[in-house]
Design a protein around this nucleic acid. Sequence first.
DNA 1: CAAGTGCAGGCTGTCAACAGTTTGCCGGGG
DNA 2: CCCCGGCAAACTGTTGACAGCCTGCACTTG
Lengths: 249, 249
Amino acid sequence: MEDDPTPPASPPTALDIVRTRSLASLVSQELEAMILSGALPAGERLNEQQLALRLGVSRGPVREAVRGLERSGLVVSVRNQGSYVRSVSAAEALEIYDLRAALTGLACARLAGTATPAQLEALGALLRRMEAAWEADAATEYYAANLDFHAALLQGGGPRGQRLYEDLGNELHLFRRRALVEPENMRESNAEHAAILAAIAAGDALAARAAGEAHIAGGKRRFQATDASQPSARQQALPAPRRRARRLA
Amino acid sequence: MEDDPTPPASPPTALDIVRTRSLASLVSQELEAMILSGALPAGERLNEQQLALRLGVSRGPVREAVRGLERSGLVVSVRNQGSYVRSVSAAEALEIYDLRAALTGLACARLAGTATPAQLEALGALLRRMEAAWEADAATEYYAANLDFHAALLQGGGPRGQRLYEDLGNELHLFRRRALVEPENMRESNAEHAAILAAIAAGDALAARAAGEAHIAGGKRRFQATDASQPSARQQALPAPRRRARRLA
DNA sequence: CAAGTGCAGGCTGTCAACAGTTTGCCGGGG
DNA sequence: CCCCGGCAAACTGTTGACAGCCTGCACTTG
């Protein structure tokens, strides 16, 4: 979407950012990115002072940001002890897959009844993009297109479900470094994508729902296969017992 | 830890509360209750100073609490302008029903495979409680038992889904004052409850899922019927344009 | 040598104050 | 009569500072 009836879709001016976003929201965004990128691994302790210093702000906005992240499930806090990047257990990861499957199925079903030709064409384009990426063996490109495909799917389902799906996907990143889509899986995964699109295009809500659910279930299966996912009986609730900065002398 | 590995389910001591909960979390809890009870209606502006004064704390904890509520969808904030209790449009309310249906179906399906006799008995007891409430024409009692029944259902599904369901239920309260369950609806609703329990007891995951979804879909239908739900084309994004405290003189 | 105790340091929880922005009101001009 | 610029109040955004708690080390004691 280059330009629109709304203001000329300008790349958000620096001035606009300052005028519309508070420091707390920016810090929240930054922390979320750091967590999802792995710069702050699961179990890591969040030192407010350190983060504030590093981001060049006061502790207030940092605390507000952490509260938000706590609500969204990326962080857990203990009074007088600190906040930690949440670690997701294997059981929780599997449940999250189930939830995403239900959400995806719902979105696909609705999309089967409401999809416009433009939407169908956009989905088809993403499908071809993934196919091309698979043939070129470009894993990261496939990964990006895959993300876009799912986003487009969920967007057709409704705004609330979309946000839920994104949040759950973020949480999934907290189960260790997730295994990226393996090459041999790309083909299987994309075949499922095609099935989803076909059902939507046919206007068959039930089939679309089943295909959407089956796709995420397949992802869950592939996830279980690659990641042995029986590390220890249960992951500890508070992984990093507060690593203290070592005194110099 | 007075005398046991797991202290005898003591009602949380005042000291424990002080020791484990921060002011921010308590304020968050309080604000949430005020919003859900209708004391702070949808669209209402949240004045930080006023709330802080009223709750006897500083603005810091209030701000942190509001950030959490913002993430959970109960509040929307605009920089330099304030925070408002979110108003949910009719379209959003309907989507939320769909999401809850999917979540409930998922939980029922899983429960059909894992339910213990104790869980089945507990669900049965709640069912009878609702029936008794219906015969006694005790709407509030029915309402409470209904809440418990659904909570028990979702509890069997998994902790993450349960929290999601609760959050969505809370959001639903923001669509005006929701109409309580009408007397004639109680019987229909409870029949659906019985169908759910029967399917779970039979261990039929597919039927349980369908029954769970159908029940929420029924709720959606009843919701649409009672609440005309076409108030105006779309609800304004920022309902209360900042009512300013009137000067005295 | 093991266990218990006291102390220092760091960090969180909370508060009060300052700066910037928005809002509503009032008066002057077209 | 309507519109517009200036003004003052209120409120939010942010910061810095203080108090209390927890942690870990060192020392003492049996």
